[in-house]
Simulated assay, not measured.
Amino acid sequence: MTTILLVEDNHDIRDLVSRKLRGQGFAVATANNGLEAVLACAQTAPALILMDINMPELDGIEATIQIRAADPEQRIPVIALTAYALPDDEERAKAAGCDAFHPKPVDFNKLFDQITSLLGETSAS
């Protein structure tokens, strides 16, 4: 089963997105902040990461940078999942190493399309 790491500090959003992902057949690991995400990636490599940007402890931008720096050869796709949806925010997320950007509120059809596209790209490599 394909595991997605969901990094989200808001309990309600984390629960909703987790349920939707499981409904699509994914296993879901969760982290409450960027620091937990970095540690989770060091322990087990998820197939994909959904990364909130604005979080306590360590924000999603810095967490993505640290995940990328820890193992540059391992290219886990990261989707920035954020309430910040201005063009500069998307550019900042992609500059940090995010592969895609998805604004909140979540459009699950579009999110699942992004996930499918990114997982297809990584399995083809």
Rank of each mutant, 00 (worst) to 15 (best):
E62V: 12
A95H: 02
L111Y: 07
G34Y: 09
D15K: 12
V7A: 10
D15P: 00
V17W: 01
N10R: 07
T3K: 10
A29H: 09
L48D: 01
A124D: 12
A45E: 06
K20V: 15
G34P: 07
A47I: 04
D113M: 15
E90V: 13
P103Q: 06
P87F: 13
I65M: 14
E90D: 07
R19E: 13
P56N: 05
G25R: 04
A37V: 07
A40V: 11
E90H: 02
A40H: 05
A63R: 05
K104T: 09
G34I: 14
E90G: 10
T3E: 15
M51V: 09
E57W: 03
M51G: 07
G25N: 02
E121D: 11
G120R: 04
A100L: 14
V17Q: 01
I67Y: 07
G25V: 11
A96W: 05
V28I: 03
L21I: 12
P56E: 09
A93T: 09
T64M: 14
A45W: 00
Q114Y: 04
N54I: 11
A85S: 15
L50P: 09
I53Y: 00
L39V: 14
G97L: 05
S117T: 15
A80G: 03
A29K: 11
Y84W: 13
V7S: 06
A29N: 10
P103D: 07
R22T: 11
S125I: 08
L86D: 04
P77M: 11
T44S: 14
S125F: 02
R19I: 13
L21A: 09
